[in-house]
Design a protein around this nucleic acid. Sequence first.
DNA 1: TATTGTTATACTCTATAACTATA
DNA 2: TATAGTTATAGAGTATAACAATA
Lengths: 155, 155
Amino acid sequence: MSTAHDRIRAAAPTSDRSLAFLIADVMRLMRRDFRARSHGLGLTPALTRLLFYVDRQPGCRQTELAGFLDVTPVTLGRMIDRLERQSLVRRVADPADRRVFRIHIASAARPLVARMNALVAKTSEHALADLPRAEREALLGALERVRSRLMPGGE
Amino acid sequence: MSTAHDRIRAAAPTSDRSLAFLIADVMRLMRRDFRARSHGLGLTPALTRLLFYVDRQPGCRQTELAGFLDVTPVTLGRMIDRLERQSLVRRVADPADRRVFRIHIASAARPLVARMNALVAKTSEHALADLPRAEREALLGALERVRSRLMPGGE
DNA sequence: TATTGTTATACTCTATAACTATA
DNA sequence: TATAGTTATAGAGTATAACAATA
């Protein structure tokens, strides 16, 4: 999924103390670390991300997943198409509302998802390695509060 | 740059205590907040991001910017093409190495960049509004350490 | 030989508009 | 009427391969 790409060696730029830039930098660096670990899982970044969300919220409707990923339902439908073609997810008809599909991880994809979760856990661990236990807890707690704040109704 | 898009109302999914998922959620939510504020600046998310980096690191070479954004030099060249076509950046020949272009914000783009910086500052502020001063400092400090850890040589 | 950047080409990602089926 | 999802179409984003110019 990335080859010549990995040759690029570059750091984050500034020592900016803006939350937005810090989060963007950390996001990008964690993505890079994960990509290096997951090298050759055979999924694009966007589909990897979607698969994580399906795993975290099994049985979601496509519209809901679109909301989680912040893309339109059209885009999400296309992504599900690609994952379904690779037999990684299944569309399950909802008997209660026949317009709706519930999205599930396909059983054949379970080992892949397990591996992905293990790798992302390693990335998190690596990122936190410099912080003492108490500071880690404080960091995760603060991020959870930021997330709540930003979620609809978190005002 | 987003219209029907903004109708989608959806929260982050789980209460996962994994750093990677937390960062991904916060990133997405901050992006959404920024998009709502910058509604109609006339730039795509990717180009907005690039413009921020050019502003933070003026005079960069394309290869360096590609490293910062974690894309290939080809991709970056294309993005610079689009920004240059809109007169937002300039390619300046480097007299010391005639293969190189130095990328600068075009003077006509300064007001736009100033507005963007003001808006992203608002997003950061909004995100941190629930945290007392000391916890904010702790959060930013911890994120800086995580960033250093993940940067090449941060091992 | 290695590096900076470009052109050619192709696939993924994403959106708007228009549609079908269902509620 | 409103909602869930799709098809048609198009443009942005991204990559690999092959190349030019320069170091």
